[in-house]
């Protein structure tokens, strides 16, 4: 675990080196396309950190222990992108994508976590953004449908037109 952590730090340094002109925090890491209005909003890590933050501790089926996940809620991001709850399609870096139903967008869940235990996390550790639900809080979140919606390595969100 500790070793993996060190590795992630190294990767971040490499990436930072690859983009010399832009600060790491200012690099857009999330693109939100409102297909209906045909607008695009870019979010850097700082943009996301500027949004109201949610935080909860939970175990996941993909991690060994309980971690505290924090970041803005999906609803907040959509609001920041000038949209309300809507049908979404979420894209990951690994080319995974999934349609996100409107009714799963709640005020405080899911969140687009950009910190685990207060630290940002790299791609190797399913970062930098992980759409995550408070699995331990609601048993209903422990279902395959929700697992399928829990997209890690998120890079883009398309707001689908009605």
């Amino acid at each position: 675990m500790k070793r993996r952590h060190l590795l992630s730090l190294a990767t971040a340094a490499t990436l930072a080196a690859a983009v010399p002109h832009a600060g790491l925090a200012e690099t857009p890491i999330l693109t939100v396309n409102d297909l209906g209005r045909d607008t695009t909003t870019l979010f850097s890590d700082a943009d996301l950190a500027a949004l109201p933050q949610q935080s909860f501790a939970t175990a996941t089926i993909w991690t060994e222990e309980i971690h505290t996940f924090s970041g803005p809620s999906l609803a907040t991001i959509l609001e920041a992108a000038g949209a309300g709850p809507a049908r979404l399609r979420v894209y990951a870096i690994n080319d995974y994508n999934v349609e996100f139903p409107t009714d799963q967008i709640r005020d405080n869940a899911p969140i687009l976590a950009n910190r685990i235990d207060g630290e940002s996390f790299p791609v190797r550790r399913k970062g930098p953004l992980w759409l995550i639900f408070p699995f331990d809080q609601e048993p209903e979140y422990q279902s395959e449908e929700i697992f399928a919606l829990s997209v890690w390595q998120v890079k883009r969100i398309d707001i689908l037109p009605d």
Partner: peptide, 24 residues
């Protein structure tokens, strides 16, 4: 740099996939 970054990204994806695979 771009190719290298791509290789790194693909490796990172693979890397995280192995974690996912193992824990799952």
């Amino acid at each position: 740099a771009r190719t290298l970054a791509l290789i790194n990204q693909e490796f990172d994806i693979f890397y995280s996939r192995v974690d996912i695979f193992s824990s799952t």
